[in-house]
Amino acid sequence: MTETKDDNRTRDETPGLDLLKEELVRYLGARMDHTLAKAGDSLTGATGQLLDIAENGGALPKAATRILGGESPLKAIAGEKLKGLMGGLLGKTREALGGKGGGRSGTTKVTSIIESLDVGLPIRAVYDHWTEYEKFSGFTKGVRHVSQEDEITTNWKAKVGPSTRGWKATITEQVPDERVAWTSEGAKGTTHGCVSFHELTPTLTRVVLVVEYYPSGFFEKTGNLWRAQGRRLRLDFKHFQRYATLTSEEAEGWRGEIRDGEVVRTHEEAVEEEEAEAEDADEDDQVEDDAYADEDEVQDVEEEYDEEEVGQR
Results as ranks from 00 to 15, higher is better:
residue 5 K to E: 11
residue 8 N to T: 01
residue 9 R to Y: 04
residue 10 T to N: 09
residue 13 E to H: 13
residue 16 G to V: 07
residue 20 L to D: 13
residue 22 E to M: 08
residue 23 E to R: 15
residue 24 L to P: 04
residue 29 G to S: 10
residue 35 T to E: 11
residue 37 A to L: 10
residue 46 A to M: 12
residue 53 I to D: 06
residue 57 G to F: 09
residue 59 A to C: 00
residue 59 A to G: 12
residue 61 P to A: 07
residue 62 K to N: 01
residue 64 A to N: 13
residue 65 T to L: 07
residue 67 I to N: 04
residue 68 L to M: 15
residue 71 E to C: 05
residue 73 P to Y: 07
residue 77 I to V: 14
residue 77 I to Q: 02
residue 85 L to G: 00
residue 92 K to W: 10
residue 96 A to Y: 05
residue 97 L to F: 03
residue 99 G to Y: 05
residue 104 R to K: 06
residue 104 R to I: 07
residue 119 V to Y: 10
residue 123 I to Q: 11
residue 125 A to D: 14
residue 130 W to S: 02
residue 136 F to V: 10
residue 144 R to G: 11
residue 145 H to R: 15
residue 147 S to N: 08
residue 152 I to A: 04
residue 153 T to S: 01
residue 164 T to W: 07
residue 170 T to Q: 02
residue 174 Q to D: 01
residue 174 Q to W: 13
residue 175 V to E: 08
residue 175 V to S: 10
residue 178 E to K: 15
residue 180 V to S: 08
residue 182 W to T: 03
residue 187 A to I: 04
residue 189 G to H: 00
residue 189 G to A: 02
residue 194 C to D: 04
residue 195 V to S: 01
residue 199 E to F: 02
residue 201 T to D: 09
residue 203 T to P: 07
residue 212 E to M: 03
residue 213 Y to S: 08
residue 216 S to L: 05
residue 226 W to A: 11
residue 226 W to L: 12
residue 227 R to V: 12
residue 231 R to H: 08
residue 232 R to Y: 11
residue 238 K to G: 06
residue 239 H to E: 06
residue 241 Q to D: 02
residue 247 T to K: 08
residue 248 S to W: 03
residue 258 I to N: 12
residue 259 R to V: 14
residue 260 D to W: 05
residue 268 E to W: 07
residue 270 A to R: 11
residue 271 V to D: 01
residue 272 E to M: 07
residue 277 E to M: 14
residue 280 D to F: 14
residue 289 D to A: 15
residue 295 E to W: 07
residue 297 E to T: 14
residue 297 E to N: 11
residue 297 E to G: 09
residue 302 E to A: 13
residue 302 E to T: 13
residue 303 E to C: 07
residue 306 D to P: 00
residue 308 E to G: 04
residue 310 V to E: 09
